[in-house]
Amino acid sequence: MLAALYSMMPLIWAVASGLRPGAEIFRYLSPLTIWSLLPRHPTLANLHVLWSGPFARAMANSIFVAGTTVVVGLLLCSTAAFALAVLRFPGKNAVFAIMVVSFLIPFDSIAVPLSSLFRGFHLDNTYTGLVLPGLGNGLAVFLLRQFFLGIPGVLSEAAMVDGLGWWGIYTRIYLPLSRPALIGAGLILFVFQWQAYLWPLLIAPAPNVHVVAIAIANFAGEFQVDYGEMFAATSFAALVPMLIMLFFQRYFAASLATSGSKE
């Protein structure tokens, strides 16, 4: 229980501080009382300031980038997983190994050289530049392939007899049967984008394409920090993905289990 407290306490404090006037955040800390944690004079003023400022734009950018990544990334990862699980072609094992190992090379380790390539293609400060790196994900490909392997082949045989092509088998049989795996993979793609900091820092420095992570780092870097506002912003940046996780939590846990513990 202490553990859960440890994991939630900083967030509770952040949310509470987001509801205080900026000047009050450090005022009730010593001596410690209940007002150290709870806002003494709760106010929504920080939210008003926040939503009328550049943070609203950053939030919209983040949601758009993460959403696009999930949709396009799922398409890309699931088609690859389908080919690797269902189709027969020469060199399949080699392709599988290359693909998963390459995608397991953590993106951040090659972000710096990739950003100079992207600038060469004028992808800096574009949504395309932000979205592209999140699309291919080794864990997602691996997870979907494992799931597809478990779908009985007789289903596609029957569909073939009925004249369905490979694309039809993929869209009408495999995708509908794979909802849990697709949700798990989608969460992996989403978390990747929502967590991203180094890449947006490198490729999208212009304010109009700022994502939430950058906006928050900028708050902390200002000389005159309004802590109330900053905490309100961090609360949003934390609560949006947490709510999504809360909703789909068991799929996420199940998908991690698939990649980590199977004999």
Partner: peptide, 10 residues
Amino acid sequence: LLPVAVPQVV
């Protein structure tokens, strides 16, 4: 598990 979703920056 929930802090997983919280960005490291946050």
